[in-house]
Design a protein around this nucleic acid. Sequence first.
DNA 1: TTGATTTCTTGCCATTTGGCAAGGGCCGGA
DNA 2: TCCGGCCCTTGCCAAATGGCAAGAAATCAA
Lengths: 198, 198
Amino acid sequence: MARQQLIQFFQSTGLMSAAQAADIAAGFAPRQLARHEDLLRAGRISDEYFFLDSGIVRAFALDAAGQEVTTGLYAGGQVALEVSSFFNRTPSPETLQALTDCQGWSITYAQLNGLFHARPEFREFGRSLLVRELMRLKTRLLGLAIDSAAVRYEALRQASPELLQRVPLKYLASYLGVTDSSLSRLRAAAAKGAAEAS
Amino acid sequence: MARQQLIQFFQSTGLMSAAQAADIAAGFAPRQLARHEDLLRAGRISDEYFFLDSGIVRAFALDAAGQEVTTGLYAGGQVALEVSSFFNRTPSPETLQALTDCQGWSITYAQLNGLFHARPEFREFGRSLLVRELMRLKTRLLGLAIDSAAVRYEALRQASPELLQRVPLKYLASYLGVTDSSLSRLRAAAAKGAAEAS
DNA sequence: TTGATTTCTTGCCATTTGGCAAGGGCCGGA
DNA sequence: TCCGGCCCTTGCCAAATGGCAAGAAATCAA
């Protein structure tokens, strides 16, 4: 129940003191999600800024054929949010869904704006988060453009090994931009390579 | 020389009045770029928020093999900016280069922050720009993940036909995530399809 | 203008990835 | 316990894309 991780998150950019972080964190309410529960449905307007303590949230959109495409995977310590819907008050193009039971902290748009108004240092933090998210997307984009599927898989394994264990292969596949059978083959090849290396 | 386009840009989100937009635009200085001139070099910290009136700016990074990869293309009416470097005051991972002679308006980080401080409506505008940029990246990411190269090419043709005419094929190719010979073939196939349709 | 450079196209073939379908294993509910 | 439904793997072949290199075409600079 403690807001430890949330407070630490606010301090992570070095833009505020421990006391400030604790004050801001006090404005957040505890929030649970059951496995398979939706945090946000496509078409709705997001009104919940959700920081994830533990568990995994998946974001997905539908392609032209109506197939789900995983666009984001969030684990503990991250904010699971459809940024454009939340900040622009527009219908979300994606659904956010709990892949496992989740615990975290949330705050509404009005409350967040109140904090932004009252606390310039938190405003700075918010901007820096947006910028960080932008960099992450850029990095993923570059990877999709220039790396082979095998390299992208390996990069994800390095960056977030826990996701590979806990997220069903079909979701990982569309997140990486490959089909599930291709990913299965990649995984087999990687395992073979690792075995030979030992 | 008129700041018309800049003023219109500020008003485009509906977050401020004409008078406010004109006031803010007055803080920007005219800025020219000669063809092939760098607006920002990789490794440097960006200190110029640059709005493009006319011309084309290309952003590129280097891949592991030292090859240039085009990560962004900006035409008139857009802001050509490496967001993370400018806002986080960190070395830029990319170079921004004028593909043609360019005219526009620019402002420094300190000046921009001054405006953000003095004018809450401009702060809102800045946030909404970041969010918009994020959505654009998400859309490109989704396209790379699920669409074929032919579809991506067609989408770019629909969205920004002027780029296809004025940007060398090799830059378009890496922007679209294909090799230049593949793009050349795609273009040939598209032309053939169009001819048959007529 | 003229020569040099860049840009674009195209052929040939290799590699990567997709599509489809069958089958095995695992897990949860009745 | 047993059944039904995911989840994952794998074989076969097709389609998409890349790599390389040669040459034509356009562009640039002197």
